[in-house]
Amino acid sequence: MPRAARSGGPVARVHRSSLLLIYLLLVAALAGCGRTSPVSDSAEETSSTAGPLRIGAIPDQDPEVLQRLYGTVADSLADALDVDVEYVPVTDYAAAVSLFRTGDLDLVWFGGLTGVQARLQTPGAVPIAQRDIDEEFHSVFVVNSATGLAPSDDLAPLAGLRFTYGSETSTSGRLMPAHFLTEQGVEPGGFPGGPGFSGSHDATLALVASGTYEAGVLNEQVYEARAAAGEIDPSVVRYARTPAYHDYHWLLGPGAIDRFGEDLPDRLTGYFTGLSAEDPADAEVLELFGAGSFVPTEASNYDQIERIGRDLGLVN
């Protein structure tokens, strides 16, 4: 007897059971809609609460350590302020600025220049605090030993070398070094073949070590950390140190002030400046940022950065 002649034969059964499976899966999917996403906090917050305070940091020094140990910072902040704190990971300087503008990030650890960009794009943003070392931050110029250059304060000999900056909108790896080069009469966009942009402080070190670029510039804090760990290639020579400037700071967005109250900036500044190296939990946070302590800061500290940024076409 031909099987197809029987109604409800195997063909139809397979069909029905797969439809049932699809239906069940759809139900399961819809039931899961209340879940929070592993990549972001759901944009729709319940209106009765202010939702969590979303913090983030530009990926600068050891981003993998900072972004993966974010629980430390978030927990400490949540305990001190008695609000929910959520750490949002970011990999890109420009993305951090955009996400601050869109309100996805409330409180962000910005570099000097990215902080200025974010503040100009987000009216009502308030600088909260900076590290003790950020009041007087430095960059270091490094050269490959094959150039034969001895450490000096004169930047002019760098003009004839293949030269790389770090990330394009890095304050310590691009903006301030370009400014100090200009002051000494070196065209910051010159150099044979044009300057390179390695993308990160560590990449700058590796590219100068390899000799692909004969000279480069990076964040002094990163240089010191790598030197202390014995990770700097012997062919990299520390050539010069820039004068001091203001750099990294915490910036708070206007959306968070609306949600948590007018006193939020003061409470946050109080929390950061109150972190003490004596307290083991506080010390952990301070160490993560490579800071001895945090100190208050204000917008005018970054006027010089804004001016230079405009000259270089990095601030519109």
């Binding site: 990926p59 981003p63 993998e64 993308g199």
Partner: peptide, 20 residues
């Protein structure tokens, strides 16, 4: 992930920035 959308590329980008 390299531009920050999460996942394997994101972890790769983080480790890549420090040349781990």
């Amino acid at each position: 992930g390299l531009i920050g959308a999460g996942g394997l590329g994101y972890q790769l980008a983080l480790s890549f920035a420090s040349l781990r």
